[in-house]
Protein backbone atom coordinates (compact mmCIF):
# COMPACT_ATOMS: atom_id res chain seq x y z
CA UNK A 1 0.00 0.00 0.00
CA UNK A 2 2.73 2.37 1.00
CA UNK A 3 4.78 1.80 -2.14
CA UNK A 4 1.73 2.28 -4.36
CA UNK A 5 0.77 5.44 -2.55
CA UNK A 6 4.15 6.96 -3.20
CA UNK A 7 4.09 5.86 -6.81
CA UNK A 8 0.70 7.36 -7.51
CA UNK A 9 1.52 11.04 -7.05
CA UNK A 10 4.76 10.60 -8.96
CA UNK A 11 2.79 9.25 -11.88
CA UNK A 12 0.37 12.12 -11.57
CA UNK A 13 3.20 14.61 -11.57
CA UNK A 14 4.65 13.17 -14.73
CA UNK A 15 1.29 13.23 -16.45
CA UNK A 16 0.95 16.93 -15.65
CA UNK A 17 4.41 17.94 -16.70
CA UNK A 18 4.17 21.48 -17.96
CA UNK A 19 0.81 22.11 -16.33
CA UNK A 20 0.45 25.54 -14.71
CA UNK A 21 2.35 26.07 -11.54
CA UNK A 22 4.03 22.70 -11.36
CA UNK A 23 6.93 23.42 -13.69
CA UNK A 24 8.29 25.61 -10.92
CA UNK A 25 6.51 24.46 -7.78
CA UNK A 26 6.67 26.74 -4.76
CA UNK A 27 7.39 23.77 -2.53
CA UNK A 28 8.24 20.12 -2.98
CA UNK A 29 7.36 17.52 -0.36
CA UNK A 30 9.59 14.44 -0.41
CA UNK A 31 9.08 11.29 1.63
CA UNK A 32 7.56 13.25 4.49
CA UNK A 33 6.72 11.16 7.53
CA UNK A 34 5.52 12.55 10.80
CA UNK A 35 5.31 11.00 14.26
CA UNK A 36 3.43 11.87 17.45
CA UNK A 37 5.67 10.02 19.87
CA UNK A 38 5.81 6.51 18.45
CA UNK A 39 2.60 6.88 16.42
CA UNK A 40 3.22 7.50 12.76
CA UNK A 41 0.64 9.98 11.50
CA UNK A 42 2.03 10.63 8.01
CA UNK A 43 3.63 8.00 5.79
CA UNK A 44 6.19 9.03 3.20
CA UNK A 45 4.22 11.72 1.46
CA UNK A 46 5.64 13.19 -1.74
CA UNK A 47 3.96 15.88 -3.81
CA UNK A 48 4.60 19.33 -5.28
CA UNK A 49 2.81 22.49 -4.17
CA UNK A 50 2.00 24.62 -7.21
CA UNK A 51 3.13 28.23 -7.10
CA UNK A 52 0.37 30.84 -6.68
CA UNK A 53 -2.42 28.31 -7.13
CA UNK A 54 -4.74 26.54 -4.75
CA UNK A 55 -3.94 23.02 -3.63
CA UNK A 56 -6.63 21.24 -1.61
CA UNK A 57 -6.09 18.35 0.77
CA UNK A 58 -9.11 16.09 1.12
CA UNK A 59 -9.82 12.83 2.87
CA UNK A 60 -11.88 11.35 5.68
CA UNK A 61 -11.46 12.49 9.31
CA UNK A 62 -8.22 11.28 10.82
CA UNK A 63 -6.51 10.78 7.45
CA UNK A 64 -3.72 13.17 8.43
CA UNK A 65 -4.57 16.12 6.18
CA UNK A 66 -4.47 18.69 9.01
CA UNK A 67 -1.33 17.05 10.40
CA UNK A 68 0.23 17.35 6.95
CA UNK A 69 -0.81 21.01 6.67
CA UNK A 70 0.70 21.85 10.05
CA UNK A 71 4.07 20.48 8.97
CA UNK A 72 4.41 23.43 6.59
CA UNK A 73 4.62 26.00 9.40
CA UNK A 74 5.98 23.64 12.05
CA UNK A 75 2.99 24.01 14.35
CA UNK A 76 3.78 20.52 15.61
CA UNK A 77 6.93 21.87 17.21
CA UNK A 78 4.69 23.41 19.89
CA UNK A 79 3.89 19.89 21.09
CA UNK A 80 6.58 17.82 22.80
CA UNK A 81 7.54 14.46 21.33
CA UNK A 82 6.80 15.12 17.66
CA UNK A 83 9.19 14.24 14.88
CA UNK A 84 9.51 14.81 11.12
CA UNK A 85 11.30 12.70 8.55
CA UNK A 86 11.84 13.57 4.90
CA UNK A 87 11.70 17.13 3.61
CA UNK A 88 9.56 20.03 2.42
CA UNK A 89 11.72 22.19 0.19
CA UNK A 90 10.55 25.76 -0.18
CA UNK A 91 11.55 27.30 -3.51
CA UNK A 92 13.32 29.24 -4.80
CA UNK A 93 15.60 29.41 -1.74
CA UNK A 94 15.56 25.63 -1.25
CA UNK A 95 14.90 25.85 2.48
CA UNK A 96 13.86 22.59 4.09
CA UNK A 97 10.84 23.70 6.16
CA UNK A 98 11.03 20.65 8.42
CA UNK A 99 14.84 20.62 8.57
CA UNK A 100 16.30 20.27 12.02
CA UNK A 101 18.54 23.31 11.61
CA UNK A 102 15.70 25.54 10.41
CA UNK A 103 14.13 27.67 13.14
CA UNK A 104 10.34 27.15 13.24
CA UNK A 105 9.95 30.87 13.98
CA UNK A 106 11.65 31.68 10.66
CA UNK A 107 9.29 29.27 8.91
CA UNK A 108 6.21 30.85 10.49
CA UNK A 109 7.47 34.30 9.53
CA UNK A 110 7.16 33.26 5.87
CA UNK A 111 4.13 31.00 5.90
CA UNK A 112 0.78 32.22 7.22
CA UNK A 113 -2.04 30.15 8.62
CA UNK A 114 -5.80 30.46 8.98
CA UNK A 115 -7.43 28.12 11.47
CA UNK A 116 -10.63 26.12 11.52
CA UNK A 117 -12.23 28.34 14.13
CA UNK A 118 -11.61 32.06 13.69
CA UNK A 119 -9.21 33.13 16.44
CA UNK A 120 -9.06 36.93 16.50
CA UNK A 121 -6.95 38.37 19.28
CA UNK A 122 -8.72 40.24 22.09
CA UNK A 123 -7.72 43.59 20.61
CA UNK A 124 -9.10 45.99 18.02
CA UNK A 125 -9.64 45.10 14.38
CA UNK A 126 -6.67 47.25 13.33
CA UNK A 127 -4.38 45.79 16.00
CA UNK A 128 -5.26 42.28 14.86
CA UNK A 129 -4.14 43.11 11.33
CA UNK A 130 -0.91 44.81 12.41
CA UNK A 131 0.05 42.15 14.95
CA UNK A 132 2.39 40.31 12.59
CA UNK A 133 3.95 43.55 11.33
CA UNK A 134 4.61 44.88 14.83
CA UNK A 135 6.09 41.51 15.68
CA UNK A 136 8.46 42.03 12.77
CA UNK A 137 9.48 45.38 14.20
CA UNK A 138 7.31 47.74 12.14
CA UNK A 139 6.33 50.71 14.32
CA UNK A 140 5.69 53.41 11.73
CA UNK A 141 2.08 54.46 12.22
CA UNK A 142 1.34 55.55 8.69
CA UNK A 143 2.88 52.41 7.20
CA UNK A 144 0.85 50.30 9.63
CA UNK A 145 -2.32 52.18 8.71
CA UNK A 146 -1.63 51.57 5.01
CA UNK A 147 -1.02 47.92 5.70
CA UNK A 148 -4.32 47.65 7.57
CA UNK A 149 -6.26 49.01 4.61
CA UNK A 150 -4.38 46.90 2.09
CA UNK A 151 -4.80 43.67 4.07
CA UNK A 152 -8.46 44.32 4.85
CA UNK A 153 -9.17 45.10 1.20
CA UNK A 154 -7.27 41.95 0.27
CA UNK A 155 -9.51 40.00 2.62
CA UNK A 156 -12.69 41.70 1.27
CA UNK A 157 -13.46 43.11 4.69
CA UNK A 158 -12.49 46.77 4.31
CA UNK A 159 -15.89 48.14 3.34
CA UNK A 160 -17.55 46.43 6.28
CA UNK A 161 -15.15 47.62 8.97
CA UNK A 162 -13.46 50.79 7.69
CA UNK A 163 -15.51 52.98 10.05
CA UNK A 164 -14.75 50.94 13.16
CA UNK A 165 -11.14 49.86 12.91
CA UNK A 166 -10.68 50.43 16.62
CA UNK A 167 -13.69 48.35 17.62
CA UNK A 168 -12.96 45.03 19.32
CA UNK A 169 -12.36 42.28 16.79
CA UNK A 170 -14.41 39.85 18.80
CA UNK A 171 -17.58 41.86 18.14
CA UNK A 172 -17.48 40.86 14.45
CA UNK A 173 -19.62 38.08 13.00
CA UNK A 174 -18.13 34.62 12.54
CA UNK A 175 -17.53 35.11 8.82
CA UNK A 176 -16.05 38.57 9.34
CA UNK A 177 -13.76 37.22 12.06
CA UNK A 178 -12.48 34.56 9.71
CA UNK A 179 -11.83 37.16 7.00
CA UNK A 180 -10.06 39.27 9.62
CA UNK A 181 -7.84 36.28 10.36
CA UNK A 182 -7.11 36.03 6.65
CA UNK A 183 -6.27 39.75 6.59
CA UNK A 184 -4.00 39.22 9.58
CA UNK A 185 -2.17 36.47 7.72
CA UNK A 186 -2.01 38.54 4.49
CA UNK A 187 -0.60 41.62 6.20
CA UNK A 188 2.84 40.09 6.57
CA UNK A 189 3.06 39.20 2.86
CA UNK A 190 3.53 35.47 3.38
CA UNK A 191 4.79 33.25 0.58
CA UNK A 192 2.18 30.65 1.33
CA UNK A 193 -1.04 30.59 3.37
CA UNK A 194 -2.29 27.42 5.01
CA UNK A 195 -6.04 27.10 5.51
CA UNK A 196 -7.20 24.47 7.99
CA UNK A 197 -10.89 23.89 7.19
CA UNK A 198 -11.51 27.65 7.26
CA UNK A 199 -15.23 27.47 6.55
CA UNK A 200 -16.32 24.45 8.57
CA UNK A 201 -17.79 26.68 11.31
CA UNK A 202 -19.46 29.16 8.93
CA UNK A 203 -22.86 29.43 7.29
CA UNK A 204 -23.20 29.06 3.48
CA UNK A 205 -23.13 32.80 2.76
CA UNK A 206 -20.01 33.42 4.83
CA UNK A 207 -18.49 30.30 3.27
CA UNK A 208 -19.15 31.61 -0.23
CA UNK A 209 -17.37 34.87 0.63
CA UNK A 210 -14.31 33.04 1.92
CA UNK A 211 -14.25 30.87 -1.18
CA UNK A 212 -14.40 33.91 -3.46
CA UNK A 213 -11.63 35.43 -1.43
CA UNK A 214 -9.41 32.38 -1.76
CA UNK A 215 -9.99 32.47 -5.52
CA UNK A 216 -8.65 36.04 -5.64
CA UNK A 217 -5.74 35.24 -3.34
CA UNK A 218 -4.33 32.65 -5.69
CA UNK A 219 -2.87 35.34 -7.91
CA UNK A 220 -0.59 36.65 -5.20
CA UNK A 221 0.07 33.80 -2.82
CA UNK A 222 0.35 30.04 -2.78
CA UNK A 223 -2.62 28.48 -1.02
CA UNK A 224 -2.79 25.10 0.67
CA UNK A 225 -6.22 24.26 2.05
CA UNK A 226 -7.60 21.38 4.06
CA UNK A 227 -11.30 20.86 3.57
CA UNK A 228 -13.94 18.35 4.53
CA UNK A 229 -16.22 19.70 1.89
CA UNK A 230 -15.63 18.04 -1.45
CA UNK A 231 -17.72 20.50 -3.42
CA UNK A 232 -15.55 23.21 -1.94
CA UNK A 233 -12.36 21.47 -3.00
CA UNK A 234 -13.81 20.99 -6.49
CA UNK A 235 -14.84 24.66 -6.69
CA UNK A 236 -11.72 26.36 -5.45
CA UNK A 237 -8.71 24.14 -5.94
CA UNK A 238 -6.42 23.83 -8.93
CA UNK A 239 -4.76 20.71 -7.56
CA UNK A 240 -6.19 18.20 -5.17
CA UNK A 241 -4.55 15.59 -2.99
CA UNK A 242 -6.58 12.73 -1.56
CA UNK A 243 -5.23 11.30 1.68
CA UNK A 244 -6.24 8.22 3.60
CA UNK A 245 -4.80 6.79 6.83
CA UNK A 246 -1.75 9.03 6.72
CA UNK A 247 -0.90 8.25 3.14
CA UNK A 248 -1.23 10.25 -0.03
CA UNK A 249 -3.44 8.14 -2.25
CA UNK A 250 -3.74 10.39 -5.26
CA UNK A 251 -2.56 13.81 -6.35
CA UNK A 252 -3.68 15.44 -9.57
CA UNK A 253 -5.43 18.45 -11.03
CA UNK A 254 -8.76 19.08 -9.36
CA UNK A 255 -10.49 18.47 -12.68
CA UNK A 256 -8.95 15.04 -12.98
CA UNK A 257 -9.54 14.04 -9.34
CA UNK A 258 -13.19 15.01 -9.42
CA UNK A 259 -14.09 13.70 -12.88
CA UNK A 260 -11.83 10.78 -13.51
CA UNK A 261 -9.77 9.72 -10.51
CA UNK A 262 -7.11 7.12 -11.18
CA UNK A 263 -7.65 5.16 -8.01
CA UNK A 264 -10.67 3.36 -6.72
CA UNK A 265 -10.28 4.69 -3.14
CA UNK A 266 -10.43 8.27 -4.40
CA UNK A 267 -13.49 7.56 -6.48
CA UNK A 268 -15.23 5.87 -3.55
CA UNK A 269 -14.50 8.85 -1.33
CA UNK A 270 -15.58 11.61 -3.71
CA UNK A 271 -18.74 9.75 -4.63
CA UNK A 272 -19.57 9.56 -0.95
CA UNK A 273 -19.16 5.85 -0.42
CA UNK A 274 -17.23 6.47 2.80
CA UNK A 275 -15.72 9.33 4.71
Amino acid sequence: MSAEAVAAPAAGTVAMEGATGLANPRAVVENLSFYYGSTQALKKISMPIADRLVTALIGPSGCGKSTFLRCFNRMHDLIAGTRYEGSITLNPEKIDLVGRSVDPIDVRMRIGMVFQKANPFPTSIADNVTYGLRLRGQANRSLLAEAVEKALRGAALWDEVKDRLNAPAQALSGGQMQRLCIARALATNPEMILFDEPTSALDPIATAKIEELIATLREQVTVLIVTHNMQQAARISDYTAFMYLGELIEFDTAAKIFTNPARKATEDYITGRYG
Binding site: M75, M109, F115, P120, F121, G132, R136, A185
Partner: peptide, 27 residues
Protein backbone atom coordinates in the same frame (compact mmCIF):
# COMPACT_ATOMS: atom_id res chain seq x y z
CA UNK B 1 -7.47 31.89 27.57
CA UNK B 2 -8.27 29.73 24.54
CA UNK B 3 -5.31 27.84 23.09
CA UNK B 4 -6.43 28.92 19.62
CA UNK B 5 -5.24 32.47 20.37
CA UNK B 6 -1.77 31.25 21.30
CA UNK B 7 -1.71 29.16 18.12
CA UNK B 8 -2.77 32.19 16.07
CA UNK B 9 0.05 34.24 17.52
CA UNK B 10 2.61 31.46 17.14
CA UNK B 11 1.54 30.96 13.52
CA UNK B 12 2.45 34.60 12.83
CA UNK B 13 5.95 33.88 14.09
CA UNK B 14 5.70 35.05 17.69
CA UNK B 15 7.94 33.67 20.42
CA UNK B 16 6.04 32.46 23.51
CA UNK B 17 6.95 35.51 25.61
CA UNK B 18 5.64 37.87 22.92
CA UNK B 19 2.39 35.90 22.81
CA UNK B 20 2.13 35.92 26.61
CA UNK B 21 2.62 39.68 26.97
CA UNK B 22 0.64 40.78 23.90
CA UNK B 23 -2.19 38.28 23.84
CA UNK B 24 -2.49 36.09 26.92
CA UNK B 25 -2.01 38.68 29.69
CA UNK B 26 -4.38 41.22 28.09
CA UNK B 27 -6.97 38.48 27.53
Amino acid sequence: VPKSMRDGSAALGAQPWYTITRIVYPA
